[in-house]
Amino acid sequence: MFGYLLYKIVCNLAGFLYPAYASFKAIKANDTKIILPWLIYWIVMAFFTLGEGIADSLIFWFPFYYEMKILFILWLILPQTRGAAYLYDNYIDPTLTFHQKEIDSTLGMAQEKATSTGVEWGRHGLATLQELGQQIIKGRTSF
């Protein structure tokens, strides 16, 4: 149990806290050559985190899983290995570019649906509040 907690802390420090601070410093430097590798890292990390979340129940029990995860995160981050750039250039960019129109269309439909649902819920909520207000004014409802 202690080992698991320690590995989670190290993974989160290496995978999120250090890159977040390095990204902050890159933005402050306002240099695209410094910002771009961190932006690529966050894209790769988003896909990794999504994949890991889906496969978690299958992979967490692999021997040395957390040790391999820490090494993988270091491989992604270190400028000597440029792991995030490798994965982005060879897998993520070509895949997203190939499916970009479908993804944009799906996201557009989802945004429209979310907007219309939000408006519908808002109207329903407002009508309910108005009805409740009228009942309170008439003295039919008490708290």
Rank of each mutant, 00 (worst) to 15 (best):
Y4Q: 10
L6A: 08
N12F: 12
L13W: 09
A14S: 07
F16M: 11
L17H: 09
Y18S: 07
P19D: 04
P19V: 05
A20C: 14
Y21R: 08
S23Q: 00
S23M: 11
K25W: 02
I27H: 12
K28R: 14
N30H: 14
T32N: 15
T32S: 14
K33Q: 15
L36A: 15
P37Q: 02
Y41V: 03
I43R: 01
T49P: 00
I54L: 13
D56L: 08
L58I: 03
L58E: 06
I59E: 04
F60H: 14
F62Q: 08
Y65I: 02
M68C: 13
L76T: 04
I77Q: 04
I77C: 07
P79T: 11
P79M: 12
R82I: 00
R82Y: 02
A84T: 01
L87K: 00
D89A: 15
Y91V: 13
P94V: 06
F98N: 12
H99I: 06
K101H: 10
S105G: 09
T106W: 11
L107E: 09
M109S: 13
E112Y: 04
E112K: 11
S116D: 13
G118C: 06
G118I: 03
E120Y: 10
L126S: 08
L129H: 00
L129K: 09
L129P: 06
Q130L: 15
Q134G: 13
T141G: 04
